[in-house]
Nucleic acid binder design. Structure first.
Lengths: 214, 214
DNA sequence: GTCTATAAACCGATAGAC
DNA sequence: GTCTATCGGTTTATAGAC
């Protein structure tokens, strides 16, 4: 959002030859990666800026030059990860079935990103407290996702592919719930459940037609 | 487990006239209640013994006379709440349908205990980290609950009340998952979902017969 | 059984040098 | 852009008086 897009005016001999703020962007990226790991493992409140800075290999003050505060750092991590996920899922489709299948595909891909799964699991539970810095973010995020998934189920219904007695709104809430809950079980014990398989099974139970794999 | 059951030998004039360690038991109970609130609101790692002690109205050292450490206090809170829930659900039944209905009933009753719901939501997510003091507790707890609920679904199947293509093990994992996930949504926004209603709807989708209300 | 006092550690954020 | 140094705050747990 606040990303600079101007091109540099001095081109030669300067350390930032290939673009403006190039080093800053790389450093910020490394900080985000380290913050993701620490917040995932320890939560926001217990995870420390000191630990994040140590993983990046710089001092606390050096890190806080790039992000004004700890909570701003968390916000940046969440915004960054949400943007990456949206990139994967939000490509245009009118097909509700495809939209739902993409979510299952995201769950399948998440098996290779346990740190990301852990981040959302831990921080969302923490953010249940109204005074948590990410509280409003998660309240809004869940309302938004519920509405979007309900819309997908609605399109499935309009295409005559939804089973009788299925309410799109309720199906959306249940799909998100089973997804989150499976992730918790999986984080506690990797061998206990197959998140994507169970999520697909759950969704399939609402459909008249097979859920595509993509 | 370590509860004393001996009766007192001196009966008159002593401050603990109505039973041995009576005051200690009451104090321990008040500590457990306060600890539940603090751990629910702030998690284990951020929740402080100081805050718990303040709510009980005693000093930190005074509190730690009753529980040897902070982690022992958390263990006691969890054991206490699990015992209360088991009391409600574990009465003997051979009827799988009744067992499942009791779980939905517990979810319904939990609408009046948001602090308890919050405790499990926050601590289980935190306990995802292998070095968390409650990690082993939750890994074991989830394995145990999955097995028990799978057994209930198995009994439902044996009674010819399970829909075709439903695997008891997977149904158990999915039921726990949707329950946990709905609680998270509910904690973030009380008006967003009806946990018990959605849980009942989910379970009903696996059954040939209506789930009883009790 | 409860207290005060204290140890030993960690925290977020800022000031200011370079 | 990164550092050192530091302020003012927090934490769990223990020692020892009463």
């Amino acid at each position: 959002m606040t990303e600079r897009t101007t091109t540099e005016t001095a081109d030669v001999g300067e350390p930032r030859r290939r673009g403006p703020y190039r080093k800053s962007r790389l450093v910020r990226r490394r900080i985000l990666d380290a913050a993701l790991e620490v917040f995932a493992q320890s939560g926001y409140r217990t995870g420390s800026v000191r630990e994040i800075a140590a993983r990046v290999g710089m001092s606390e003050a050096g890190l806080l030059h790039h992000f004004p505060s700890k909570s701003a750092l968390l916000a940046a991590v969440l915004a960054h990860r949400d943007a990456l996920a949206a990139e994967r899922v939000d490509r245009d489709t009118d097909d509700g079935l495809v939209a739902l299948a993409r979510l299952v595909g995201l769950a399948r891909a998440d098996a290779d990103r346990p740190r990301v799964v852990e981040l959302y699991c831990v921080i969302s539970a923490e953010a249940t407290a109204p005074d948590h810095p990410a509280h409003a973010f998660f309240v809004d995020r869940y309302a938004r996702l519920r509405a979007r998934i309900a819309d997908s189920f609605e399109r499935v219904r309009a295409a005559g592919q939804l089973r009788d007695g299925v309410d799109p709104q309720r199906a959306a809430a249940q799909m998100m719930a089973v997804w989150d809950g499976l992730q918790l079980q999986w984080l506690l014990d990797r061998s206990s459940v197959d998140v994507a398989a169970e999520l697909a099974d759950h969704v399939q139970r609402h459909l008249r037609v097979p859920l595509p794999r993509a």
